[in-house]
């Protein structure tokens, strides 16, 4: 389990994250939601090990993050930042190969093939990364990140993603999240920072809502998603409806639909 307990982080005496506790189980997708400036990115960086928290502690499979060396950490967690640029003319396949861990000589060919198939980038392998479209680039990066934790290991691994879908169109967003869903069977725990409440409701097993550096809500979608909490956290009127066909929660942020929603709720009742 990836567990963060009571973590706290300040920039110039101003707390960005205060007393936040969060955990990711292997085999689940945890979505982190919250308005801009809520401390999501800082929380993400603390979990990834980029910055260390002022108080509290982060454990990967029971081992303290601070006690892990850079390369040991890399074997239990992979990180996909929001935007990654590649500064030289690498081909898509070469970018994926960059992610190979140092000690993985034996099955590397098969592993590369598997992640590239999963992320649907096999046909792009000889193209230059810099010439790919936004969605293709993001999938190549995902493959590059996945290869780091692809080799089966006796301990669970974690994948942290920071708004990987923010610049993608709607079908590309679903492609990326569908890929993440398939990782559950690999004993990989996924933590993903998202902006799209609907996407989170659809794919996440659990949700953490961050507001002002605090965890305002943490649990299953049904437990966390409430109109009052979401409206308050995002400072915007938010309504929840059920999709008539799939019975999934849909989030509407357009207050004009207010009366329509009431009608649909009455209809359900």
């Amino acid at each position: 389990m990836l567990q963060a307990e009571d973590i706290h982080f300040c920039i110039r005496q101003r707390p960005i994250v205060k007393k936040a506790s969060i955990s990711v189980n292997p085999g689940e997708i945890l979505a982190v939601l919250g308005p801009n400036g809520a401390g999501k990115s800082t929380l993400f960086k603390i979990l990834a090990g980029e910055i260390s928290c002022t108080r509290g502690q982060v454990d990967y499979n029971g081992q303290n993050l601070k006690a892990l060396k850079t390369h040991q950490l890399a074997s239990v967690r992979a990180v996909m930042p929001q935007h990654s640029t590649v500064s030289f003319p690498f081909t898509a396949r070469e970018v994926v190969e960059l992610g190979l861990p140092k000690d993985s000589k034996r099955n590397s060919e098969r592993n590369i093939r598997e992640v590239m198939e999963l992320t649907k980038v096999v046909h792009l392998e000889d193209r230059l990364y810099q010439q790919l479209s936004g969605g293709e680039k993001q999938r190549v990066q995902l493959a590059r990140v996945l290869i780091q934790i692809w080799e089966k290991k006796p301990f669970p691994r974690y994948l942290l993603l920071d708004e990987p879908t923010s610049s993608l169109d709607i079908s590309q967003q679903h492609i990326v999240l569908d890929i993440l869903k398939k990782l559950k069977s690999q004993n990989i725990g996924v933590l993903i920072v998202l902006h799209d409440l609907n996407l989170a409701a659809h794919y996440a097993d659990r949700i953490a809502i961050v507001k002002d550096g605090l965890i305002a809500g943490f649990g299953k979608v049904e437990e966390v998603y409430s109109e009052t909490l979401l409206s308050e956290v995002f400072d915007h009127p938010i309504r929840l409806v059920r999709d008539q066909e799939t019975q999934q929660i849909l989030v509407s942020s357009n207050s004009k639909f207010h009366s329509d929603l009431k009608i649909s709720k009455q209809a359900q009742a």
């Binding site: 850079t70 990180v79 590649v86």
Partner: peptide, 20 residues
């Protein structure tokens, strides 16, 4: 070569990949 390859993805990314 391996470290410089990783760095061409960015310093943050290289760190994530386990490079000092």
């Amino acid at each position: 070569y391996r470290n410089l390859n990783a760095l061409s993805l960015g310093e943050r990314e290289a760190f994530h990949m386990g490079i000092s």
